[in-house]
Structures are given as structure tokens and as C-alpha cells.
Design a protein around this nucleic acid. Structure first.
Length: 478
RNA sequence: CGAGGUGUAGCGCAGCUGGUAGCGCGCCAGUUUUGGGAACUGGAUGCCGCAGGUUCGAGCCCUGUCACCUCGACCA
């Protein structure tokens, strides 16, 4: 296992200090740099390339399900933000305000969007008049600002990149099924692109999005046993439509309110990838989003023919993967460590000995294993190895999550687990807010979600002992 | 935002009782090397986080401020 032999010295080991390890990986793998404003990060080319791959794949999934991209303004007039009561209350404490244009004070201050529901509603009001105008299936890629107190790269920054889908439907059923569909898209993306297993479920009322009737979530478990909310999908009913006066004339010639959804994922997904797959040598990237899927490290590259052969190999492999040839002056050992730190899935070593035997050595990032592959079959081998890497990563993450998921029937049991074993705790809940608050108070855990896949652990609430029929995932969250 | 911690070369750190700045790694040049972060020789690098103050003199003392880290409260 790559975890057991630490080859990259510059990174703090996970067991020693997980938070430091995380920061080390972000910086040393050149994903980000800190910016001069607290909580803002510079996403460096390697980190941004990961985001571009995420965007590309996810955007394709949105298009497949009929969505169109739009772009809304960065600013929201205060009066517009005020229109939906719960929504403002939820976001007001963390919005940034623009009060001046040049030296002149603005008539009305503008908030830098923390999310764009209000803007979409305002726009929908103008463009939706008839049942023929529905549905509207919109998405936007942009950045938003939330003035967080505690910040961490990717996991919680004051400005972050995301996508936000906003849709409008004629019926509640259709809107509900959209909400569910997009949650499934997220879950499929997490599993197929990020090799990250997730728990799909509904948020409790306490954890629900400000202004939503229902919030659905995908929850992932990180290496250190903390939960990470990795994507959310909200059903709004007609609440926003009513607040913003979005109306249309239906087939019966009646003026009615449409039903709305929104759903989002952010650059936090990169944090999720780091903390799901990374090890003591650094990043381990799922092949689907790795900027470089295989890197060729020439050995004794000064020797006659080595570089030529390496370049030839690179050109052949361009057709089957994102390939890079490192012709740099550093020693092979240095390069090995460097690309391990950066999480490149496959390393191809090519030296005089290999060339003589018409072969190359391939090292897999996921487990450090080295295999010898004939240069004749390399084009078919690489895709196979990438697919295999993905599966190993997914299965390993799933296995770990299962190992770190516990069940509790009583409050004492739950407290004991929360104190000693990091991970998810499955426990029954009666549905009362007081019990949810109490678990946070006495055990430090929050409800992660009410999973769609229910199982019965007992008949009574883990907290109050009253009758309970809902099983929840609990945990400490990022 | 509350409690605690840390800011000295690109990175990691040392710097005594206040006396004018140092080590390791990295960087640059050259030579030898090249299958797990190579070796040797030579060289460059500092608004001591920032702003005030005390002092003949401040990296060190005082005040303020900013950033980062950890733990809480709030959140994608």
C-alpha cells in the first residue's frame, strides 16, 4: 500500500495532523495559493485544470438532461434580496455589500450574490407568461461570495466557484422529480467521475436551505471520519414564485404560480477528492478529472535515443489519454515523488533497458504497484489501467466508509461512538428538533441526512426514547 | 465571532540578558551523475508580517493591527 511507505517527505502525514496534511497537499500539489484577502484563494493552473474537468463532465450531464447555461449579474439590489423572508434571514449574516461606486454612495446598496435564486426569480417574472414558456431549465457557472468566519481552501472560502441550477415547472410533481433527478446526477457524478461513494438523502428541517420546502443532499465521508456535504438539490414549491410574483396563464386560462427548484455543487468537490483519496504521499486523483492521466519519466534521458523514444510514445498516447512527458533536468527519483504528490494516476518509466526490450514500466499511483508493459500493447493497456485505478479508488473509499459507519440504539452508545470513533453514525430519530439539538449539544454531531435507503435499527428515538421510524446519518461535518 | 498558538531568506527553523542576522533544504553557475526526491565546488538571496511607541540602540520590550493554524459558535 502506498499509505504504508511514505516517499514524499514534504507532506505532513495524515495521522500526525490531518488538517496540516490537507493544507500541505493543497499547497505542495500546486492546487492553490493563499490570496491577500482572508478566505480567498488563488486557484493555480493544476487546481483549475481539475475544476475544468469537473465542469466539463458535469456540464455534459446537465445538457443531457435538457438544461441550458445562462449568466446572471454579480450584484443583487438589497430590495430584491429582501423579497423572500426565510431566504434573506438565512443569507443576510454572510453577504458582502457594495455601498459605493467610485466616491459616490449608492442609492441602494448591492449585495454580491451569495446564491442567485432572487435574480432568477426576478428574471423568470419577465420571461414566463404562458404554460408554453415552461419548463425553464437553467444553470449557471459562476462564483459566489459568502463572508465566512472560518475559512479553508476549497472547503470553505469566502469566494468560491460553483454551478447553480434553477428551474421552473408547471407542476409540483415535475419540480419534485427535477430535484430528485439532479440529486441523482450529482451522485452519479461523484461515483463515476470522482470515484467517491455518497449517501443520498433528505436534510432535516433544521439543516434545510433557507427558503426551501425540501433539501436533498449527497454526503461523503472523508479520510478523517468527518462528513462533507458535497452537493444539494432543493425543492421550493411555489414559495419563491409567490414572493417574487412569478405567474403564468395555464391551459385553463387561470393565472397560477409555477414550482421551482435549485441545485448546486462547488469547488468543495476538489476538497472532497483530496480528503477521500489522498494519502501520505499527497494527492491521488480519479482518472476522470486528473489533468494529467499518465506521465512519462524518461530514465537516463541524456543517452542516445531515450528522449526520441519517449516523445514517440507520448505522441502515440495522446490519442488514448491526457499524457505528459517530463523532459526536465531533475533526477527520475525527484520526478517520481513530484507526480505522486500531484496525484497523477499512472507513471510510465522509459529507460535504455526498456527500449532494448520494447517495453516500459508503469507505476500505479493508487497502490504504488509497478508492472512491465510491452510497447506494442500500450495503447490498449493505459485505458484499462485507468479504469482499474478508478475502480480500486471507488471500492477502497466505499470499504472505508462502511468500516467507519456505526449504529447506535441509545444515547450513551451514540455518545461513546461520537467520542471515540470518527465516522457516520446511523441512529433512529423521532423527528423532533429538540432531539436533533440535543445530539449536537451532548455528542457534538449534526444530522447529515435522512437516507433514501432506510433500515430499521430500532423502534425508538436514540435521544428521547419515543417512537421513531426514521433512520438518520449523524456525524461531525466540515 | 470567542479561546489558544504561530509570523525571521522561496520552504522548514535557530536567534541567549536589547548591541545591527544565522542554519538546513531549495535557488543560480560549473563538473560528475540519472530505474525512488544524486554528489562535489563556488555563488546569490532578508522593510525579522505591518504600523506606532520605549531606548543611544529593537528580531527581542510595550501598544495596536493583519494573516495563518487548532478548538468552539455559523455555514457549500
Amino acid at each position: 500500500m502506498a499509505d504504508s511507505k511514505k516517499l514524499v517527505k514534504e507532506i505532513t502525514s495524515m495521522d500526525e495532523d490531518f488538517a496540516k496534511w490537507y493544507t500541505d497537499v493543497c499547497l505542495k500539489a500546486e492546487l492553490i495559493d493563499y490570496a491577500s484577502v482572508k478566505g480567498c484563494m488563488i486557484i493555480r493552473p493544476y487546481g483549475y485544470a481539475i475544476w475544468e474537468n469537473i465542469q466539463h463532465i458535469m456540464d455534459g450531464m446537465f445538457k443531457e438532461t435538457g438544461h441550458e447555461n445562462v449568466y446572471m449579474p454579480l450584484f443583487i439590489p438589497e430590495s430584491l434580496l429582501q423579497k423572500e423572508k426565510d431566504h434573506v434571514e438565512g443569507f443576510a449574516p454572510e453577504v458582502a455589500w457594495v455601498t459605493h461606486g467610485g466616491d459616490e454612495k449608492l442609492e441602494e446598496r448591492l449585495c454580491v450574490r451569495p446564491t442567485s435564486e432572487t435574480l432568477f426569480c426576478d428574471h423568470f417574472k419577465n420571461i414566463v407568461h404562458s404554460w408554453r414558456d415552461l419548463p425553464k431549465l437553467y444553470n449557471q457557472w459562476c462564483s459566489v461570495v459568502r463572508w465566512e468566519k472560518t475559512t479553508r481552501p476549497f472547503l470553505r472560502s469566502r469566494e468560491f466557484l460553483w454551478q447553480e441550477g434553477h428551474t421552473l415547472h408547471a407542476t409540483a410533481e415535475e419540480a419534485r422529480s427535477e430535484t430528485e433527478q439532479m440529486l441523482n446526477v450529482y451522485a452519479r457524478f461523484a461515483e463515476e467521475a470522482l470515484a467517491m461513494p455518497v449517501v443520498k438523502g433528505q436534510k432535516t428541517e433544521k439543516e434545510r436551505f433557507a427558503g426551501a420546502e425540501a433539501t436533498y443532499t449527497i454526503e461523503a465521508l472523508m479520510h478523517d471520519g468527518k462528513a462533507l456535504q458535497s452537493g444539494t438539490s432543493h425543492y421550493f414549491g411555489d414559495g419563491f414564485s409567490r414572493a417574487f410574483g412569478v405567474q403564468y396563464t395555464d391551459k385553463e386560462n387561470k393565472l397560477v404560480y409555477p414550482y421551482q427548484t435549485s441545485w448546486g455543487t462547488t469547488t468543495r468537490l476538489i476538497g472532497a477528492v483530496i480528503m477521500t483519496h489522498g494519502d501520505d504521499n499527497g494527492l491521488v486523483l480519479p482518472p476522470a478529472i486528473a489533468p494529467v492521466q499518465a506521465v512519462i519519466v524518461p530514465i537516463a534521458s541524456h543517452k542516445e535515443g531515450v528522449l526520441d523514444k519517449a516523445r514517440e510514445l507520448r505522441d502515440r498516447l495522446k490519442a488514448v489519454c491526457r499524457i505528459k512527458l517530463d523532459e526536465g533536468e531533475q533526477s527520475p527519483g525527484w520526478k517520481f515523488a513530484e507526480y505522486e504528490m500531484k496525484g497523477v494516476p499512472l507513471r510510465i518509466e522509459l529507460g535504455p533497458r526498456d527500449i532494448e526490450n520494447n517495453q516500459c514500466v508503469i507505476a500505479r499511483r493508487v497502490d504504488g504497484e509497478k508492472i512491465t508493459v510491452s510497447l506494442d500493447s500500450i495503447e490498449t493497456e493505459i485505458p484499462k489501467l485507468l479504469a482499474e485505478a478508478h475502480n480500486v479508488m471507488y471500492n477502497r473509499a466505499l470499504e472505508r466508509r462502511e468500516k467507519m459507519t456505526y449504529t447506535a440504539k441509545t444515547l450513551d452508545e451514540l455518545k461513546e461512538i461520537a467520542e471515540t470513533k470518527p465516522g457516520f453514525i446511523k441512529a433512529m430519530w423521532c423527528g423532533d428538533r429538540e432531539c436533533e439539538d440535543r445530539l449536537k449539544e451532548v455528542a457534538g454531531v449534526t444530522s447529515r441526512c435522512i437516507p433514501f435507503e432506510q433500515e430499521s435499527i430500532s423502534d425508538t428515538c436514540v435521544c428521547c426514547g419515543k417512537k421513531a421510524d426514521k433512520m438518520l446519518y449523524w456525524g461531525k461535518a466540515y
